[in-house]
Protein backbone atom coordinates (compact mmCIF):
# COMPACT_ATOMS: atom_id res chain seq x y z
CA UNK A 1 0.00 0.00 0.00
CA UNK A 2 1.43 3.34 -1.09
CA UNK A 3 0.11 5.42 1.81
CA UNK A 4 -0.16 3.03 4.73
CA UNK A 5 -0.09 4.89 8.03
CA UNK A 6 -0.27 8.33 6.41
CA UNK A 7 -2.84 10.94 7.34
CA UNK A 8 -4.02 12.99 4.37
CA UNK A 9 -6.13 16.11 4.04
CA UNK A 10 -8.01 16.36 0.75
CA UNK A 11 -10.01 19.46 -0.21
CA UNK A 12 -12.94 19.30 -2.61
CA UNK A 13 -13.50 15.73 -1.47
CA UNK A 14 -17.23 15.45 -2.08
CA UNK A 15 -17.24 15.14 -5.84
CA UNK A 16 -15.30 14.31 -8.96
CA UNK A 17 -11.55 13.88 -8.69
CA UNK A 18 -11.65 14.65 -4.95
CA UNK A 19 -14.14 11.89 -4.25
CA UNK A 20 -11.98 9.49 -6.26
CA UNK A 21 -8.96 10.58 -4.25
CA UNK A 22 -10.66 9.75 -0.97
CA UNK A 23 -11.36 6.25 -2.30
CA UNK A 24 -7.88 5.73 -3.77
CA UNK A 25 -6.04 7.16 -0.75
CA UNK A 26 -8.09 5.01 1.64
CA UNK A 27 -7.47 1.98 -0.57
CA UNK A 28 -3.76 2.74 -0.29
CA UNK A 29 -3.98 2.79 3.51
CA UNK A 30 -4.30 6.51 4.26
CA UNK A 31 -6.57 8.06 6.85
CA UNK A 32 -8.33 11.08 5.38
CA UNK A 33 -9.73 14.41 6.50
CA UNK A 34 -12.18 14.93 3.67
CA UNK A 35 -12.89 18.64 3.25
CA UNK A 36 -16.17 19.51 1.60
CA UNK A 37 -18.06 22.74 1.15
CA UNK A 38 -21.29 22.02 2.97
CA UNK A 39 -22.86 19.30 5.11
CA UNK A 40 -24.11 16.41 3.01
CA UNK A 41 -25.56 13.22 4.39
CA UNK A 42 -24.72 11.14 1.32
CA UNK A 43 -21.10 12.32 1.56
CA UNK A 44 -20.93 11.36 5.21
CA UNK A 45 -22.32 7.91 4.46
CA UNK A 46 -19.78 7.48 1.69
CA UNK A 47 -16.94 8.52 4.01
CA UNK A 48 -18.08 6.03 6.64
CA UNK A 49 -18.42 3.22 4.08
CA UNK A 50 -14.98 3.96 2.62
CA UNK A 51 -13.43 3.95 6.08
CA UNK A 52 -15.02 0.62 6.95
CA UNK A 53 -14.12 -0.93 3.59
CA UNK A 54 -10.42 -0.15 3.91
CA UNK A 55 -9.91 -0.16 7.70
CA UNK A 56 -8.94 3.52 7.95
CA UNK A 57 -10.70 6.63 9.21
CA UNK A 58 -12.29 9.15 6.85
CA UNK A 59 -13.54 12.28 8.59
CA UNK A 60 -15.75 14.79 6.82
CA UNK A 61 -14.79 18.41 7.56
CA UNK A 62 -16.98 21.20 6.22
CA UNK A 63 -15.43 24.41 5.07
CA UNK A 64 -16.25 27.24 2.68
CA UNK A 65 -12.82 27.76 1.19
CA UNK A 66 -13.47 31.32 0.05
CA UNK A 67 -13.79 32.25 3.75
CA UNK A 68 -10.43 32.46 5.53
CA UNK A 69 -12.04 32.27 8.98
CA UNK A 70 -13.86 29.09 7.95
CA UNK A 71 -10.57 27.55 6.82
CA UNK A 72 -9.08 28.28 10.24
CA UNK A 73 -12.07 26.75 11.98
CA UNK A 74 -11.71 23.65 9.84
CA UNK A 75 -8.06 23.36 10.77
CA UNK A 76 -8.95 23.65 14.44
CA UNK A 77 -11.00 20.48 13.94
CA UNK A 78 -8.02 18.80 12.31
CA UNK A 79 -5.68 19.92 15.09
CA UNK A 80 -8.14 18.72 17.73
CA UNK A 81 -7.65 15.18 16.45
CA UNK A 82 -4.00 15.35 17.62
CA UNK A 83 -2.85 13.31 14.66
CA UNK A 84 0.16 14.20 12.49
CA UNK A 85 -0.59 15.49 9.02
CA UNK A 86 1.52 13.83 6.32
CA UNK A 87 -0.19 14.72 3.06
CA UNK A 88 -2.17 17.66 1.73
CA UNK A 89 -4.01 17.54 -1.57
CA UNK A 90 -5.26 20.95 -2.66
CA UNK A 91 -7.94 19.67 -4.98
CA UNK A 92 -10.89 22.05 -4.55
CA UNK A 93 -11.44 24.23 -7.55
CA UNK A 94 -14.06 25.95 -9.63
CA UNK A 95 -14.08 26.52 -13.35
CA UNK A 96 -16.30 29.45 -14.29
CA UNK A 97 -17.75 30.19 -17.67
CA UNK A 98 -16.15 30.30 -21.06
CA UNK A 99 -15.97 34.03 -21.85
CA UNK A 100 -14.06 36.31 -24.15
CA UNK A 101 -11.07 38.07 -22.61
CA UNK A 102 -12.84 41.41 -22.97
CA UNK A 103 -15.93 39.98 -21.30
CA UNK A 104 -14.18 38.52 -18.25
CA UNK A 105 -14.77 40.92 -15.39
CA UNK A 106 -12.46 41.54 -12.47
CA UNK A 107 -15.13 40.01 -10.24
CA UNK A 108 -15.19 36.85 -12.38
CA UNK A 109 -11.44 36.61 -11.94
CA UNK A 110 -11.58 37.23 -8.21
CA UNK A 111 -14.28 34.59 -7.69
CA UNK A 112 -12.16 31.94 -9.41
CA UNK A 113 -8.90 33.05 -7.78
CA UNK A 114 -10.50 33.08 -4.31
CA UNK A 115 -11.03 29.32 -4.43
CA UNK A 116 -8.44 28.08 -6.91
CA UNK A 117 -5.53 30.15 -5.66
CA UNK A 118 -5.99 32.14 -2.44
CA UNK A 119 -7.74 29.32 -0.58
CA UNK A 120 -5.06 26.91 -1.79
CA UNK A 121 -2.40 29.23 -0.35
CA UNK A 122 -4.18 29.61 2.99
CA UNK A 123 -4.81 25.87 3.35
CA UNK A 124 -1.17 25.21 2.43
CA UNK A 125 0.11 27.72 4.99
CA UNK A 126 -1.80 26.06 7.79
CA UNK A 127 -1.15 22.50 6.65
CA UNK A 128 2.58 22.91 6.12
CA UNK A 129 2.94 24.42 9.59
CA UNK A 130 1.46 21.18 10.93
CA UNK A 131 3.75 19.12 8.71
CA UNK A 132 6.79 21.16 9.73
CA UNK A 133 6.38 19.93 13.30
CA UNK A 134 7.38 16.47 12.07
CA UNK A 135 9.84 17.68 9.42
CA UNK A 136 8.11 15.69 6.71
CA UNK A 137 5.20 15.93 4.36
CA UNK A 138 3.94 16.00 0.81
CA UNK A 139 1.70 18.54 -0.86
CA UNK A 140 -0.05 17.87 -4.15
CA UNK A 141 -1.64 20.93 -5.75
CA UNK A 142 -4.21 20.10 -8.38
CA UNK A 143 -3.53 22.42 -11.29
CA UNK A 144 -4.67 21.78 -14.84
CA UNK A 145 -3.17 21.50 -18.28
CA UNK A 146 -5.02 24.79 -18.82
CA UNK A 147 -2.45 26.36 -16.51
CA UNK A 148 0.33 25.18 -18.82
CA UNK A 149 -1.19 25.31 -22.29
CA UNK A 150 -3.82 27.99 -21.63
CA UNK A 151 -7.42 27.58 -22.74
CA UNK A 152 -10.49 29.61 -23.54
CA UNK A 153 -11.16 30.61 -19.92
CA UNK A 154 -8.89 33.43 -18.84
CA UNK A 155 -9.84 33.27 -15.16
CA UNK A 156 -9.54 29.51 -14.78
CA UNK A 157 -6.34 29.03 -16.79
CA UNK A 158 -4.64 32.01 -15.11
CA UNK A 159 -5.59 30.69 -11.66
CA UNK A 160 -4.10 27.29 -12.48
CA UNK A 161 -0.93 28.89 -13.86
CA UNK A 162 -0.70 30.67 -10.51
CA UNK A 163 -1.06 27.33 -8.73
CA UNK A 164 1.90 25.98 -10.72
CA UNK A 165 4.04 29.03 -9.92
CA UNK A 166 3.12 28.78 -6.22
CA UNK A 167 4.02 25.08 -6.28
CA UNK A 168 7.57 25.92 -7.35
CA UNK A 169 7.93 28.63 -4.70
CA UNK A 170 6.58 26.35 -1.98
CA UNK A 171 8.84 23.48 -3.10
CA UNK A 172 11.94 25.67 -2.92
CA UNK A 173 11.12 26.92 0.56
CA UNK A 174 9.65 23.85 2.19
CA UNK A 175 12.15 21.17 1.24
CA UNK A 176 14.33 22.41 4.11
CA UNK A 177 11.67 21.09 6.50
CA UNK A 178 11.24 17.85 4.58
CA UNK A 179 8.10 18.80 2.69
CA UNK A 180 7.82 17.97 -1.00
CA UNK A 181 5.44 20.03 -3.11
CA UNK A 182 4.25 19.06 -6.57
CA UNK A 183 1.47 20.03 -8.91
CA UNK A 184 -0.69 17.62 -10.84
CA UNK A 185 -2.19 18.87 -14.08
CA UNK A 186 -5.15 16.79 -15.19
CA UNK A 187 -6.37 17.02 -18.73
CA UNK A 188 -9.92 16.45 -19.95
CA UNK A 189 -11.40 14.48 -17.06
CA UNK A 190 -14.87 13.01 -16.72
CA UNK A 191 -16.27 15.10 -13.85
CA UNK A 192 -19.20 17.42 -13.20
CA UNK A 193 -17.07 20.31 -14.41
CA UNK A 194 -17.33 19.04 -18.00
CA UNK A 195 -20.68 17.26 -17.93
CA UNK A 196 -22.56 20.11 -19.59
CA UNK A 197 -20.26 20.37 -22.59
CA UNK A 198 -21.82 19.68 -25.97
CA UNK A 199 -21.00 16.50 -27.89
CA UNK A 200 -19.17 18.65 -30.43
CA UNK A 201 -16.88 20.15 -27.80
CA UNK A 202 -16.27 16.74 -26.23
CA UNK A 203 -15.37 15.32 -29.66
CA UNK A 204 -13.00 18.22 -30.35
CA UNK A 205 -11.29 17.82 -27.00
CA UNK A 206 -10.88 14.07 -27.16
CA UNK A 207 -9.52 14.28 -30.71
CA UNK A 208 -6.47 16.10 -29.32
CA UNK A 209 -5.75 13.27 -26.87
CA UNK A 210 -3.59 10.32 -27.97
CA UNK A 211 -5.84 7.96 -26.01
CA UNK A 212 -8.96 9.48 -27.64
CA UNK A 213 -10.96 9.57 -24.42
CA UNK A 214 -11.56 11.55 -21.25
CA UNK A 215 -9.61 10.65 -18.14
CA UNK A 216 -11.38 8.91 -15.31
CA UNK A 217 -11.24 10.61 -11.90
CA UNK A 218 -9.54 7.59 -10.36
CA UNK A 219 -6.78 7.81 -12.98
CA UNK A 220 -5.99 11.31 -11.75
CA UNK A 221 -6.30 10.19 -8.13
CA UNK A 222 -3.77 7.40 -8.77
CA UNK A 223 -1.14 9.92 -9.87
CA UNK A 224 -1.91 12.08 -6.82
CA UNK A 225 -1.44 9.04 -4.58
CA UNK A 226 1.95 8.37 -6.15
CA UNK A 227 3.09 11.99 -5.74
CA UNK A 228 1.89 11.94 -2.13
CA UNK A 229 3.71 8.72 -1.36
CA UNK A 230 7.29 7.97 -0.42
CA UNK A 231 7.64 6.34 -3.84
CA UNK A 232 8.00 9.92 -5.11
CA UNK A 233 10.63 10.77 -2.51
CA UNK A 234 12.94 12.37 -5.14
CA UNK A 235 10.21 14.44 -6.79
CA UNK A 236 9.49 18.02 -5.79
CA UNK A 237 8.66 21.31 -7.51
CA UNK A 238 7.30 19.51 -10.56
CA UNK A 239 4.08 19.67 -12.52
CA UNK A 240 2.93 16.24 -13.63
CA UNK A 241 0.52 16.05 -16.54
CA UNK A 242 -2.14 13.34 -16.52
CA UNK A 243 -3.85 14.05 -19.81
CA UNK A 244 -3.98 10.85 -21.84
CA UNK A 245 -1.21 12.18 -24.07
CA UNK A 246 -1.55 15.69 -25.47
CA UNK A 247 1.61 16.41 -27.42
Amino acid sequence: MLLKGKNALITGAARGIGAAMVEVFAHEGANVWAFARKPDEAFEVRCAQTAEKYGVWVKPVYCELSDTAAIKDAFKQVMADKQPLHVLVNNAGIMGEDRMFQMTSEQDMRTIFDVNFFAMIEVSRLATRLMARNKQGAVVNIASIAGIDGDSRLDYSASKAAVIAATKKMARELISVGIRVNALAPGFTDTDLVKDLSEKVVAEQTEKILMKRKGRPEEIANVAAFLASDMASYVTGQTWRADGGIL
Binding site: M79, A132, R133, V177
Partner: peptide
Protein backbone atom coordinates in the same frame (compact mmCIF):
# COMPACT_ATOMS: atom_id res chain seq x y z
CA UNK B 1 7.63 28.77 10.06
CA UNK B 2 8.94 26.00 12.30
CA UNK B 3 8.93 28.42 15.26
CA UNK B 4 5.29 29.33 14.66
CA UNK B 5 4.44 25.64 14.34
CA UNK B 6 6.26 24.93 17.61
CA UNK B 7 4.46 27.75 19.43
CA UNK B 8 1.09 26.60 18.08
CA UNK B 9 1.88 23.09 19.23
CA UNK B 10 3.16 24.14 22.65
CA UNK B 11 0.21 26.37 23.50
CA UNK B 12 -2.51 24.73 21.41
CA UNK B 13 -3.29 27.90 19.47
CA UNK B 14 -3.54 28.96 15.82
Amino acid sequence: MTLIAALEDAFDIM
